[in-house]
Amino acid sequence: MIGLAPILESQEMSASIILQLILSGVTIGSIYAMVALGFNIIYNSTSIINFAQGEFVMLGGMFMVSLVGPLNLPMWVAFPIAVLAVTLIGTAFERLCIHPLKMPSVLSLIIITIAGSILLKGGAMFAWGKETFSLPHFSTEKPILLLEATILPQTVWILGIIGMVVLLLALFFRFTIVGKAMRACAANRPAASLVGINVKRIVLLSFALSAAIGAIAGIIITPISLMDYERGAILGLKGFGAAVLGGLGNPMGAVVAGFLIGIVESLCAGLISSHYKDAVGLVVLLMVLFIKPSGLFGSAQVSKLKKF
């Protein structure tokens, strides 16, 4: 009940507060968007929802913590090493768990990625222990003032890096031969195979790529969100939500949906009630699905072609 009353009375219920809440929502949403991007790349070329995607994010953060902390490497050196390490893990994951399968059913693939996520989480527990780790911000922690609202420089970093990743992905898919092959796989797998695309290699590549994107996400959010070995699941969950809301297979949609969920949650927590914040994001998601069963930007025709 404390909820609404002061807002209605409040004189200073001004643009600056709404702006602050939206900026907070952008910070939260950028994390969802990054995770959702990773989901999409694997989904596109394989129709697999990789439940271990959140673990890639966690691993990215953890590697960075080790490289920057105990090993004392500068950030710009540690960043690519951490991404590379997780990419290798993603590749190994595909080789060991996905590659050996002949004609797997979608459900068994889901369980396999869940089993994979359990293993990655367990491995991280042994490698880093059970503590929560922090990472220094990329630049200063001094907040930037924006019309009476504040935003952390780290959030600006996150937004910039997301923008860059999205741009590079778009260029990659549009202009490189490998990228085109991946898109062909996404559109029609048997046909792609017929024109001589090595589908198995594309699957491997998509796992490597989404592991790399997951790692980048983990590295850039850890200064804000901190990181521990248990965190992957919840990050994956939110990212999955964003990916579905945006329409599976649509990376742009995923990014937009990620920000949307973040902003909705933030506005709800700031203006109505924080107790039901997480539910509100999901209710919005369900409503959208009920009205538009293939997400905001998903194509109904494409989703019909997918076997699951």
Binding site: S24, T27, I221, S266, A269, S274
Partner: peptide, 8 residues
């Protein structure tokens, strides 16, 4: 990971 909405 971010409690600024509540704190706002």
């Amino acid at each position: 990971t971010d409690m600024t909405p509540q704190l706002t």
